[in-house]
C-alpha cells in the first residue's frame, strides 16, 4: 500500500544553546513524527554547504527521513537560532540570510508537490521574498485532494500582515495558539474571527492549542474541546510538542478518522512527546501502535 506523503515545507535549522545545539524547525519535526506514525514524511528545505548542514542531514537521515528534497546552498550558511537564557526566560535570535531563505522550486519539488497528500508550512519561512514565492508556487501545484496545514507563527519581526493573510488564504487547516489567536484579532480587526476564517479565507478547520488547557478543533459545524492528556513530564520539555501535535493530527485527518478521534489521538501523541526530551524523541513502539 502506498504510504501517504506528508511534506514539511520551510525552515530547518539548529537551535544553538549556550552549551549545546539541537536540530529544529517545524518542517523537520513534523516530517519526523509523520514518518514515525507510518507515513512518508518528507522534510522539504535547504541547508548551507557547511558543517552545520552536513551534520543536520546526517541526523535526519539517521531518523530514516528522506533527505533528497533538502537542497544545498553554496553561498549562505545553514540556518541557526541563537538561544540565550536570561533569568530563566529563553530569548531567540533567528539568523537572517540563511539557506532556508532561498528555497527554490526545482523540478523534483514540483513532482513532490503533485504527489503530496498533505503539506505543512509556516509563516516563518516566508519572511524572505525568495522562499515566500517558492512556497506559494509549491502550494499552487498540489492536487485538489491535498491537505494544506499552516502553522501560524507570529514572531517579530519575521512576519507581515500580507504574509499572514495569504497564508490563511492558502490553508485548509490553520494551527495557532491562544496568543496568536488574539494577535490575529488585533491585526485584522474582525469581530468574529472564526466566521471570518471559514467564510472569507476558506479555512476548513481551525486548530487552537492552549498549552496546559488542551486543544480545540473548530469546524463550521462544531467545536470540539479536548483537555490536555495527563502524563508525567518531569523529565520532558515542551520542545517540538506543537509539531508532534500537527503531525499526528495530519496523520489522522488523512486516514479520515472521525474528528473527535483526530484531536484526542493528536493530544495523546503530543503528551507522549512532551514527556520526553527534545523534539525528536525515541517513542516506544507500544505508544506508536496505539496512537497511529
Amino acid at each position: 500500500m502506498r504510504k501517504p506523503v506528508i511534506a514539511g515545507l520551510g525552515e530547518v535549522l539548529w537551535d544553538v544553546f549556550p552549551e549545546y545545539k539541537r536540530p529544529g524547525g517545524a518542517p523537520a519535526n513534523v516530517s519526523f513524527h509523520a514518518t514515525k506514525l507510518g507515513n512518508n514524511g518528507v522534510p522539504v528545505s535547504r541547508v548551507g554547504d557547511d558543517e552545520n548542514g552536513e551534520e543536520l542531514l546526517k541526523l535526519l537521515a539517521s531518523h530514516h527521513l528522506d533527505i533528497s528534497y533538502i537542497q544545498k546552498d553554496d553561498r549562505v550558511p545553514t540556518g541557526t537560532v541563537e538561544v540565550s537564557m536570561t533569568n530563566g526566560e529563553a530569548s531567540y535570535v533567528i539568523t537572517d540570510g540563511v539557506a532556508w531563505d532561498r528555497l527554490s522550486l526545482t523540478p523534483a519539488w514540483q513532482d513532490l508537490a503533485r504527489d503530496a497528500d498533505a503539506v505543512c508550512f509556516g509563516t516563518l519561512a516566508q519572511r524572505n521574498e525568495v522562499s515566500r514565492r517558492t512556497i506559494r508556487e509549491f502550494l499552487k501545484l498540489v492536487s485538489g485532494e491535498c491537505l494544506k496545514i499552516a502553522d501560524i507563527n507570529l514572531r517579530e519581526p519575521h512576519y507581515t500582515e500580507e504574509v499572514i493573510d495569504t497564508t490563511l488564504q492558502l490553508a485548509d487547516l490553520v494551527k495557532l495558539n491562544a496568543h496568536e489567536w488574539n494577535r490575529l484579532h488585533e491585526l485584522f480587526g474582525v469581530d468574529d474571527l472564526k466566521e471570518w476564517l471559514f467564510s472569507e479565507k476558506g479555512v476548513r478547520i481551525i486548530c487552537l492549542t492552549k498549552g496546559m488547557d488542551g486543544a480545540e478543533l473548530i469546524t463550521p459545524e462544531q467545536h470540539l474541546v479536548e483537555p490536555v492528556h495527563p502524563v508525567d513530564n518531569t523529565d520532558g520539555d515542551s520542545v517540538g510538542v506543537g509539531d508532534a501535535f500537527t503531525a499526528s493530527l495530519t496523520h489522522h485527518l488523512l486516514r479520515n478518522s472521525p474528528l473527535d478521534v483526530c484531536i484526542s489521538a493528536a493530544n495523546k501523541y503530543a503528551a507522549q512527546v512532551a514527556a520526553r526530551k527534545g523534539a525528536m524523541p525515541d517513542l516506544p513502539s507500544s505508544v506508536i501502535n496505539s496512537l497511529a
Binding site: 494544506k148 462544531q222 472521525p258 473527535d260
Partner: peptide, 14 residues
C-alpha cells in the same frame, strides 16, 4: 481539500 471525514457533532457537545 474538502474535509472528508465524519463530523461527530456529538457526544462531547452538551
Amino acid at each position: 481539500m474538502a474535509l472528508k471525514t465524519w463530523n461527530p457533532r456529538s457526544v462531547s457537545q452538551y
